[in-house]
Simulated assay, not measured.
Amino acid sequence: MLTLFTNRYQAFQPPQGVPVRITLSAPRFKLPYPLQHAVRELAPRREYFTKPLPEFTAAYRADLDEVGPGRIAERLRAIVNAEQDHRLVLLCFEDLSDAAQWCHRRIFAAWWKDLTGDEVRELSPIADHYEQGTLM
């Protein structure tokens, strides 16, 4: 079983599941929890960050398509097997409570749902609402 969520580094709480880095670099600030896993294939390329959202999204989704959901699932299942916890929380930096913010973790979530049918819920506030998801 594989249950995916997204969150930001600063909002993650260990009871949510296993934290997984999906950014190019690790946080430069001290985290109150261990961060032992990273899936580099889910980090967008540095050059994409200067692009407008539609171009960023197209380029990032093309990279995800190249890797494919099967290979990504293998990487994620390896973490599930190592941790004996099916709940993985994919982490990055953006605070989505600001309506003007967007983030690659939600682009990944939409791509994953499009290809697998599986929902990836955000655990931190998104603009004026929460996407509630079960943590069990």
Rank of each mutant, 00 (worst) to 15 (best):
Y60V: 14
T3R: 15
M136Y: 02
L123E: 05
A100N: 08
H104I: 12
D85N: 15
E55S: 14
I79V: 02
P14T: 01
A11R: 15
Q16E: 09
H129D: 10
T3Q: 07
L123P: 09
P69S: 13
N7Q: 06
H37I: 08
Y33P: 06
M136W: 03
V67N: 00
R106T: 14
D63M: 07
F56G: 00
I126M: 13
I79M: 07
H37E: 03
A100V: 01
Q16S: 13
P27H: 09
Q84N: 13
L96R: 11
G117S: 11
Y130C: 04
L123I: 12
T3A: 01
H104F: 05
G68N: 03
R61H: 02
A62Y: 11
F56S: 00
V80D: 06
W111I: 09
L42D: 15
Q36T: 03
S97L: 05
P69V: 14
D95L: 12
R121N: 04
K113R: 13
T134S: 13
R75W: 05
S124Y: 01
D98F: 09
K113H: 13
Q16T: 01
D98G: 02
A78N: 01
P14E: 04
L4H: 01
S25Y: 10
G133Q: 08
E66N: 10
L24R: 15
E122W: 06
Q36R: 13
A127I: 06
L4S: 08
G68Q: 01
K30E: 14
R75E: 14
I126D: 01
A73R: 14
R106S: 12
S97G: 15
S97K: 12
P52S: 08
L35E: 05
V67H: 09
L53H: 05
T116S: 10
G17S: 01
L88Y: 09
P19I: 12
E122C: 10
E41R: 07
P52C: 05
E131H: 03
Q10A: 15
R61W: 05
E41G: 03
G117I: 15
P44C: 05
T3F: 10
L4N: 03
R8F: 08
R21M: 14
M1D: 11
L42G: 03
R75H: 13
R46L: 08
D114Y: 03
A99I: 04
T6I: 12
R75K: 06
A100P: 01
N81Q: 15
G133M: 05
S97F: 00
R61Q: 12
Q84C: 02
A11V: 04
A109E: 08
C103P: 15
Y48W: 10
P14A: 08
R21C: 15
L96F: 09
T116F: 05
D128L: 06
D65P: 04
L88N: 08
F93I: 03
P32T: 02
E131L: 01
L91C: 04
E94N: 00
L64T: 02
D63W: 05
P19H: 10
N7G: 15
F49V: 00
D128S: 11
K30S: 13
F29K: 13
L135H: 02
E41C: 10
H104G: 14
A109G: 07
W102D: 11
M1H: 14
R75V: 00
H37N: 09
T50V: 13
A110M: 00
D85R: 08
R46Y: 09
E47Q: 07
E66G: 02
L64K: 06
